[in-house]
């Protein structure tokens, strides 16, 4: 009886080991720190792959060819962002939208974004103002 359980455990063990190994390597590869705009400006995060959340500043979106630049703001501060990714920008990406950009903060102070997510799709909101 013990032998069968052992065989089964060894089988499962091998499978789980492979899965865990893949998971750990995938995890190292894709783990990304998330900051707000203020945290990014105050911290030393140059040359790291990070995600930054903020709001698309008004009148800042410019499109040249397939390139898009804008400023990502939080309160009074903002950073310039250049979108270099290949996916089309989401429909929800517009002035005033909450956006999460993913990429690298270059030494010249420009954020080179490979991916942009903008919040909107459904209007699940906290309770609206009641009277």
């Amino acid at each position: 009886m013990g032998g069968k359980k052992l065989k089964f455990a060894v089988g499962i063990g091998i499978v789980l080991a492979v899965v865990i190994w893949e998971a750990v390597s995938g995890f190292q590869q894709s783990k990304t720190y998330y900051f707000t705009v203020n945290e990014l400006i105050s911290g030393n995060t140059a040359h790291q792959h990070v995600r930054v959340g903020g709001i698309v500043a008004s009148d800042s979106i410019q499109r040249h060819g397939s390139e898009v630049t804008f400023r990502l703001a939080q309160d009074a501060s903002s950073i310039p962002v250049r979108y270099i990714g290949t996916d089309p920008l989401p429909d929800t990406f517009k002035v005033g939208a909450q956006a999460i950009v993913e990429g690298e903060y270059a030494a010249n102070g420009e954020f080179r974004a490979e991916k942009i997510q903008a919040k909107c799709a459904s209007k699940y909101q906290a309770t609206p103002a009641k009277g």
């Binding site: 390597s25 995890f27 894709s30 783990k31």
Partner: peptide, 20 residues
């Protein structure tokens, strides 16, 4: 610190699991 993981993590993990 908020750390997020992206599709590569899921894809790499889901691959052996899915095939098995």
């Amino acid at each position: 610190k908020t750390v997020t993981v992206g599709p590569p993590y899921y894809n790499k993990t889901a691959l052996p699991i899915g095939l098995l």
